[in-house]
């Protein structure tokens, strides 16, 4: 872990109508941290992510990224700053191929996104296509590059969610239940994959699978009813009486 703070969340609050979903959440993230976020259904975990990515803006409070205020910045700008996410529910370009999904991410990075007078192919944009091919190779998807996303298994689609996030070259990657709905072997595969991501990449992971989350995190945040119940090391969370009662009451962690 590095000492540098990259994300500062200061007393953010989110209301939907009269309902206060997040209450006074404050939180600092350092570079390279692996933060697990747990909490019962409806605790506000996904909403918290939406506020960090700009898919929603907070009712009150501020968010700073690398010292710059981004509280009300729209999501596409934050992606360019280096905040990427995966979605709890697969949210891909289903009718397009894996390759096209990836090319769209990369062409923005290569700065050719709004070129409109030149046909895009592997001759006109060699570097772009080479990078996409190389990425597919590392993710073990090269053989199926032309397969439409909708024809992939659920587990593979989850994997592509992560790949597209990583491909934006983020400094923070927010993973919303990356292994939800996966078989044990698929889960193991994803966990390995996440462990192998670059050390300097900050990860925040929402996960209900406690084995996964304790295996990946070096710090854990427990959200309960919209506020931070605990923010500590995994060991301390394991021993936290309150957390055990509220969250893990049924399935105590060993």
């Amino acid at each position: 872990m590095y000492e540098e703070t990259i994300l500062e969340v200061n007393a953010i609050n989110k209301r939907f109508g009269g309902l206060e979903i997040l209450k006074e959440v404050s939180f600092d993230v350092s570079r390279g941290e692996r933060i697990g976020i747990i909490g019962p259904n409806g605790a506000g975990k996904t909403t918290f992510f939406n506020l960090l990515t700009g898919d929603l803006t907070p009712t009150q409070g501020t968010i700073a990224f690398h010292g710059k205020h981004i509280t009300n910045e729209p999501n596409y700008k934050r992606t360019r700053r280096g905040i990427a996410r995966t979605f709890q529910k697969n949210n891909l370009l289903e009718k397009l191929s894996i390759f096209e999904n990836l090319l769209l991410v990369l062409q923005r990075k290569h700065g050719i996104k709004s070129t409109w007078f030149k046909v895009r192919n592997n001759r006109s944009y060699r570097a772009l296509y080479e990078e996409a091919e190389a990425l597919l190779e590392t993710w073990g998807l090269h053989g199926r590059r032309n397969t439409k996303v909708e024809n992939l298994s659920y587990g593979e689609q989850r994997q592509i969610e992560i790949m597209l996030g990583v491909a934006t070259d983020p400094s923070v990657l927010l993973l919303d239940e990356p292994t939800a709905g996966m078989s044990q072997s698929e889960t193991d595969y994803i966990v390995e994959l996440l462990k192998n991501l670059p050390e300097a990449l900050t990860l925040m992971i929402i996960e209900h699978d406690l084995d996964v989350i304790f295996g990946l995190s070096d710090r854990m945040l427990v959200l309960y009813n919209g506020h931070v119940l605990a923010d500590d090391t995994p060991e301390a969370i394991r021993d936290n009486q309150q957390v055990n009662e509220i969250y893990m009451g049924k399935a105590r962690v060993v």
Binding site: T53, L93, L104, Q107, S114, T115, W116, K118, T168
Partner: peptide, 22 residues
């Protein structure tokens, strides 16, 4: 068929994802 046009097709398919891509 240009990069711009491919973005349009992406928007048609899933605008939310395109925003998320930046």
């Amino acid at each position: 068929e240009s990069p711009f046009g491919k973005v349009l097709v992406g928007i048609k398919e899933n605008e939310k994802r395109l925003k998320s891509m930046g």
